[in-house]
Computed example of a mutant assay.
Amino acid sequence: MSNISKIISKYKNDLFNLNHVVGVGYGLKEKNGRKTGEKAIVVLVDKKVPQHRLKSKDIVPFSVDNYRTDVIEIGELKLQDMRTSRLRPAQPGVSIGHYKISAGTFGALVKDKETGDLLILSNNHVLANITNGVDDRARKGDPILQPGSYDNGNKPDDVIGYLERFIPLKWSSGSGNVCPVAAAGEKILNFILHLFKPSYNIRFTKSSGANIVDCAVARPANEKAVSGKILEIGEVKGVKEPSVGMRVLKSGRTSGLTQGEVKVVSATVQVKMTETEQATFEDQFITEPMSKPGDSGSLVVDRNNNAVGLLFAGSEKATVCNRITNVLDSLNIEF
């Protein structure tokens, strides 16, 4: 490798002077899409052009020193900041969010089943600020920013739409229980406990039940400002149920295009919503780790671009998704 590195260093400037060349490195030569096993100096180009259409001075040499060359087309290289930038029309897969939150992902462009109006799909916690429907965290008509505020989105310049509807989230809080009976029970039990363990406390929390989805939709401020083509994936072709072993993909604000395998279906999980709140979700499916913070709201599709789920939670070892049929039914929407 040290010899090849010296050759690359010696000739890279000459190769960069050739039209369309954007890089040079080491690899194995390919012929008809198959690796030959032969070591090669790989010349990376933004676009492959037939040799007869090139000027003689722009033709990649057959060999460099004692190594054959191989030409690979990789396109024009750019900084990958599109997902966190202002994009019009905005595509699914980029940064978006309720004006009070940091940023999540624009999941898909869908239609209202009754009116046919276009709507932006993502999570409740992305478009509706994790609201349970009776608090002051969000309400219909709230501004939705693209990019999200974490990515420097601001009102009014970056308003892409307005919160239309959401499925309230049910969560349990560690902030205590206002029920008088529970409060009295806590007081009695803590009095007894403190006789033996002065530094411990018992606290009751009210269970609000389980969730099936974490989803919401927003109405675009201008339908021409949004696109249905998911970044690096394309148009949604249909809907399919997840199954163990299925390979799936997502396009998200933080980690971009990733894929993984469905490992578990019909799962019930407990998800930490904030530092003091957690929620239970039923009928979820779990994939290999394929997300990072900020990817919430991404649409999960199979290899044929059939929608399978809506990504909403995860860790370094797994990603958790709502079944897309539950999302569509809950919000009365369709692709």
Rank of each mutant, 00 (worst) to 15 (best):
R139H: 14
N129C: 09
P180C: 09
Y26P: 09
I96Y: 04
L231G: 01
K263F: 06
Q278C: 15
G107W: 00
Q80V: 09
K187T: 10
P147E: 05
Q284D: 06
G116C: 07
A221T: 15
P61D: 09
H194I: 05
E38K: 11
V64Q: 04
K6H: 13
L54S: 01
S102M: 14
G174N: 14
N66C: 14
H52L: 11
L189C: 09
D151V: 02
G107L: 00
R303E: 12
K12R: 12
T319C: 07
R139P: 06
V49Q: 05
S199T: 13
P289L: 08
N129Y: 05
N129R: 04
R68K: 12
V271N: 01
R86T: 15
T276D: 08
E232V: 10
K55W: 09
A307R: 00
L257K: 10
G153A: 05
G33V: 05
V271R: 03
P61I: 09
L54D: 02
I8T: 04
V271W: 02
I120H: 08
S56Q: 12
A216K: 03
I233A: 03
G23N: 06
G107F: 01
D14T: 11
L189H: 08
M246E: 02
F335P: 01
I230W: 04
P147Q: 04
S266K: 15
Y99E: 11
L331A: 06
T131Q: 03
L87Y: 12
C321R: 01
R86S: 15
A184K: 11
K6V: 14
L163M: 10
K237M: 12
S298P: 01
S85C: 10
N177A: 14
N222Q: 15
V21K: 03
D329C: 10
D214M: 05
V262E: 00
L145Q: 03
N132F: 05
L121T: 00
T280V: 15
V71R: 02
V134R: 12
P143F: 02
N124F: 05
T276Q: 08
S95C: 08
A103W: 00
T205C: 09
S243C: 08
L328W: 00
S5D: 14
Y99M: 11
R219N: 09
S5W: 11
E232I: 08
E223K: 12
N322F: 00
V300C: 03
G93K: 01
G33F: 04
G252C: 02
K29N: 10
K57P: 11
G256F: 04
N66I: 15
D14P: 03
